[in-house]
Amino acid sequence: MPALAEAEDAYETVGDYTAPNPVIRTRGVDVFYDDNHAVQKVDLDIGQNEVIALIGPSGCGKSTYLRCLNRMNDTIDSARVTGEITLYGEDIHARQMDVVMLRARVGMVFQKPNPFPKSVYDNVAYGPRIHGLARNRTELNRIVQRSLERAGLWLEVRDRLDQPGTGLSGGQQQRLCIARTIAVSPEVILMDEPCSALDPIATARIEDLIDELRRNYAIVIVTHSMQQAARVSQRIAYFHLGKLIEVGGTDAIFTNPRHKLTEDYITGRFG
């Protein structure tokens, strides 16, 4: 496929990678796993009150890039991240940056629901407790209820707050993990394939929730589902072989992609 090979050689990102009200800005971000150059010179803004979907074939670097945004790659011995990443202008790799606090400000929801082996209440209360966000039990109760309400789960669990979070259904567990994330008042929510383990009904609930949450947060979602990206996002960033190929409004990317690699992926020619 000579046309595809030629397109792969094109390096400069197509489209506007900036956002009018950036919460996170990344410039020249590279990620290496030992000698593997997994993400290459990515420039991208994450804007306030938007959902930006990272799409692309498996192994293209989108989840690796996502983990850069709250330094989750620090937990991998072979990983090395270079370039500039700022959160409201603060360098997240600065020596004075508290990584625990960073991960509260930039929360993460993983592919597989991972509630703590604790009660529903304690799952949500854990973060506010360790960060000292509640002065007393009344305030903690209020945070737990508000977080569960915002995650669309309160009415389903209010009578079983003392029961294990692991006893909930898969979709409920994922919404519990979202409640746990928002309980510490983050500024950004990262979601790595949050619906891949869920059935269509639970997926629809999470997608509705994402649309509600973007009123208060910047959200970055990695998804393999073109339909999901079209439903929940306002902007799309397409990755291929570690490079950010194209960025643009969701409608524009799906109806009139400007790069051949983007078009080929969206139309199902590869990926």
Score class of each variant (00 low, 15 high):
Asn141Met: 05
Phe116Lys: 01
Trp154Pro: 08
Ser119Cys: 03
Asn141Tyr: 07
Asn114Leu: 13
Ala125Thr: 11
Val109Gln: 02
Arg142Val: 07
Leu140Ala: 03
Asn123Val: 06
Val99Gln: 14
Gly132Lys: 11
Leu140Asn: 01
Ile130Ala: 01
Lys112Ala: 14
Met108Ala: 04
Thr138Lys: 14
Arg146Phe: 09
Leu148Val: 03
Arg129Cys: 13
Asn141Asp: 15
Gly107Cys: 12
Ala151Lys: 07
Arg103Ala: 04
Ala151Thr: 07
Phe110Ser: 01
Arg142Pro: 02
Lys112Phe: 15
Ile130Met: 05
Ala151Pro: 00
Gly152Asp: 11
Val109Ala: 03
Pro113Thr: 01
Glu139Pro: 04
Lys112Arg: 14
Asn114Trp: 07
Thr138Ser: 13
Met101Lys: 14
Ser147Asn: 07
Lys112Trp: 08
Leu148Ile: 07
Ala151Trp: 05
Glu149Arg: 00
Gly107Tyr: 11
Ala125Lys: 10
Val120Gly: 00
Pro117Asp: 10
Gln145Cys: 09
Arg105Gly: 00
Glu139Val: 10
Ala134Trp: 12
Arg103Cys: 04
Arg105Ile: 02
Pro117Ile: 06
Val144Trp: 08
Leu102Asp: 06
Met101Gln: 10
Leu102Thr: 05
Asp122Phe: 14
Gln145His: 07
Ile130Leu: 09
His131Ile: 11
Ile143Leu: 09
Arg135Gly: 15
Phe116Leu: 14
Gly127Asn: 08
Asp122Leu: 13
Val99Tyr: 12
Arg137Trp: 01
Val120His: 00
Pro115Glu: 06
Tyr126Arg: 01
Gly152Lys: 12
Asn123Lys: 04
Gln145Lys: 15
Tyr126Val: 02
Phe116Thr: 01
Val99Ala: 14
